[in-house]
Write a protein that binds this DNA or RNA. Structure first.
Length: 733
DNA sequence: TTGTGGTGT
């Protein structure tokens, strides 16, 4: 790895990128500062308790801080993918710590990854490279899978796990160095972690200086793709920036000539693939980037149907495709055959396909966006960013020099945004706002790298207020209600956590957690033709709708003793079911733990339909997600004013009628309606055909064609709505 | 009458 350094003062200068072999020393020089190798602290034992005490004392007496000066303790490490930084930097840091603190019982490095698979494979690879014979020195932690020990020195974990650890211990006393990998991906978790670390580095180092204990320092390494450094650098004032040389091969870029451009990028892409297939050597495999399943299947069909089919091996690749079919893309095709992988952005970051020499880039991506005017997440086809185009092109140069064919002219590329919008700007932030008070704990402040969109924040707070999880009149740091505090640690959406709480009070925790864990799975059903699907579904189908159908499927899976054979026969994903079982156990365990100090009254349900009770728990919690059918058979939202028990502010902002303004496709909340936009029950729902007159839904999405679809639907008529329970509500103190 | 990609002590 090769590094060059730059400080705040010479930002304008183009950084020098040095060859690989000099990397280690320059990194260590920056990492250890001047006193590297001269400091030899002797720590008899690891002493986090002392550190915690001093940190608390410091925070009690410290003045508000304008700028969290990193004082050289944060390093921003920029380098292309494939430069080896994810495996090398943790080892370099590990050896540095060992040398610097030779008598310390234990030092530990955390490395966060956005994806489970990366955390698992990197830990395995580093373990192999270091030839470590003691189990657990290098460990991984992802949900449901950890091999972390007290003796662990290098800990690869997902961002989600580190967030949970921050909420449990904001000072991260178990770590001496935190490395944030793939920071450029800017997931919501990345943004929270970076926002926390910039404060923590400041305070940990202040205490370390006061106590003259090097060991109490926290150092942070932010590893990111090459690109704009100034945003990160000003967010971490006093940080060092280093550049690492890449290990990828050159990729020749071919743009579409302006004369051949067309609105129909699909036909253009398919035609280009066929043309290139006829021109290029057959052992140069293709990777085609499109936006979604439907497009991909269409193009795949087209490519397979041509008379070239003897020489092409066409593989679709998208997340919903069963694992078995996905594996085709990773195989070596028959001799004399060209492999053509047609993929979504799953192949952009998550999966690396061997043997690719040519990339065909449509220039489009299907991405989530948040429509704050009506609190909906929408999926829309958009232009990619320049950095995504580079990322896609890079896929052609993993093993040898390659080329990319961009289905857009250079002039279009020049108009692309530099980077994609970070997830925090295009998502519902309800769950984030429930976690946020934990991040104010250190010194009562928190600032994101880029401010949250205020409309999105208002939406999130209103929903949390409606759920009684926050008190909006309080400061952010003290905003959570007692219930909110408890539910903030559940790994599910706040509204689902609240459903779980009500379900517990009514003695149907087990059933509600089954249903919720089923909703957490993706791609539950294996592909099958429509006729067999409806036959199979009959076995589980519940007249009440999707929620009880999920419960039936779960119950029968458990009855089958979690059998894969049963799953295959029922055209249900075994992977999804196994996942649901684990999520369910986690939810029940968490709920039991949080209710330990609370009296729960589990009265048996008598003379009452248990399914109605379960549905009532959902409907009562999310009463603003009720919808009713109009005479034309389409759905719109209803509001039941009597049931709105929270503040007037919410009533004003959330008159949940499905109306639309001039703008087609918008589900207006409060503006005078000009035109009513109707929602449809999503075809995957068991109620899509029956279409009962009154329903609740757990999710609404807007697709590319402006169809507003309701998901996870259940019948919810007046009988259920007015259900009275003899059970006591849980009171939480 | 249909689903970009991730993630959670």
């Amino acid at each position: 790895m090769a590094l060059a350094s730059s400080s705040r003062d010479d930002k304008a200068e183009k950084p020098e990128i040095l060859p690989m072999c000099l990397a280690k020393n320059s990194f260590l020089k920056e990492f250890g500062g001047k006193d590297y190798a001269t400091v030899n602290m002797t720590e008899k034992r690891y002493a986090p308790i002392v550190l915690k005490k001093r940190l608390k004392k410091l925070l009690k007496t410290s003045e508000p801080v304008e700028e969290y000066d990193q004082d050289g303790n944060t390093i921003i490490l920029m380098g292309e993918t494939g430069c080896g930084k994810s495996t090398q930097v943790p080892q370099i840091v590990h050896r540095y710590l060992k040398k610097k603190f030779p008598n310390t019982k234990r030092t530990c490095i955390a490395i966060t990854e956005p994806r489970r698979l990366a955390a698992l494979t990197l830990a395995a690879r580093v373990n192999e490279e270091m030839k470590s014979t003691i189990e657990g020195i290098i460990a991984h932690s992802v949900r449901f899978d950890t091999n972390f020990f007290d003796r662990t020195r290098i800990h690869f974990l997902t961002e989600g796990i580190l967030l949970q650890q921050i909420m449990a211990d904001p000072f991260l006393l178990g770590y001496h160095v935190v490395i944030v990998d793939e920071a450029h991906e800017r997931s919501i978790a990345t943004d929270l972690i970076l926002g926390h670390l910039r404060k923590l580095v400041y305070y940990r180092n202040k205490v370390a200086k006061m106590m003259e204990r090097e060991l109490f320092k926290l150092k942070v390494v932010i590893m990111t793709a090459t690109g704009e450094a100034s945003t990160l650098q000003s967010y971490f004032p006093g940080s060092k920036v280093l550049f690492i040389e890449g290990r990828t091969h050159p990729v020749k870029i071919n743009y579409l000539s302006p004369s051949s451009q067309s609105d129909d990028y699909l036909s253009l892409t398919a035609a280009t693939v066929m043309k290139l297939h006829n021109e290029l050597p057959v052992d140069e495999h293709f990777l085609v980037f499109l936006t979604g399943q439907e497009e991909i299947e269409g193009v795949v069909k087209q490519l397979r149907a041509t008379n070239h089919h003897f020489h092409v091996f066409v593989c679709p690749l998208y997340a919903a495709l069963p694992k078995k079919a996905q594996e085709n893309a990773f195989t070596i095709p028959p001799y004399g055959t060209r492999k053509i992988v047609v993929a979504t952005n799953i192949a952009e970051t998550s999966l690396t396909i061997p043997g690719i020499k040519v990339v065909i880039d449509s220039g489009f991506i299907k991405a989530k966006s948040y429509l704050s005017s009506h609190g909906l997440e929408a999926y829309q086809v958009q232009h990619i960013s320049k950095s995504q185009a580079a990322q896609r092109a890079g896929r052609a140069g993993r093993e040898c020099p390659g080329q990319v064919y961009r289905m857009y002219p250079k002039q279009h590329f020049d108009n692309f945004a530099d980077f994609e919008e970070p997830e925090i700007k295009r998502s519902n932030l309800t769950q984030l706002h429930l976690m946020l008070p934990h991040f104010y704990k250190i010194d009562g402040s928190f600032k994101f790298m880029e401010d949250i969109n205020p409309e999105i924040a208002v939406d999130a707070k209103l929903e949390l207020e409606a759920l009684d999880l926050i008190n909006p009149l309080q400061d952010t740091k003290a905003m959570l209600t007692e219930l909110g505090k408890r539910l903030s640690k559940f790994p599910i959406e706040p509204k689902l956590a609240t459903v779980l709480y009500y379900a517990t009070a009514r003695g149907v925790l087990e059933q509600a957690s089954s249903i919720i864990s089923m909703m957490e799975t993706e791609n539950l059903f294996l592909p099958s033709n429509e006729d067999t699907r409806s036959l199979e579904l009959q076995k589980f189908w519940a007249p009440e709708g999707d929620l009880i159908t999920y419960l039936n499927i779960f119950t029968q899976f458990v009855k089958s003793k979690n059998s894969k054979v049963w799953c295959d026969k029922s055209r249900i994903s075994f992977r999804a079911m196994t996942y649901a079982v684990r999520v369910r156990k986690q939810l029940i365990d968490l709920m039991k733990r949080f209710l330990e100090e609370v009296e729960v009254d589990y009265k048996p349900l008598h003379n009452q339909n248990i399914n109605m009770t379960i549905i009532h728990c959902f409907g009562k919690t999310i009463h603003w997600q009720r919808a009713t059918m109009d005479p034309t058979g389409k759905y719109y939202r209803i509001e039941n004013v009597q049931k709105v028990k929270h503040s007037d502010r919410i009533k004003k902002n959330r008159i949940w009628e499905a109306r639309v303004r001039e703008n087609p496709g918008l589900w207006s909340l409060d503006a005078p309606p000009k035109k009513i936009l109707h929602a449809k029950i999503h075809p995957s729902s068991t109620l899509a055909v029956a279409r009962p007159s009154e329903i609740i839904f757990l999710k609404a999405t807007l697709n590319e064609k402006n169809d507003l679809f309701l998901h996870h639907c259940s019948v919810y008529d007046e009988t259920i709505a007015n259900l009275r329970h003899s059970h006591n509500e849980i009171t939480i103190f």
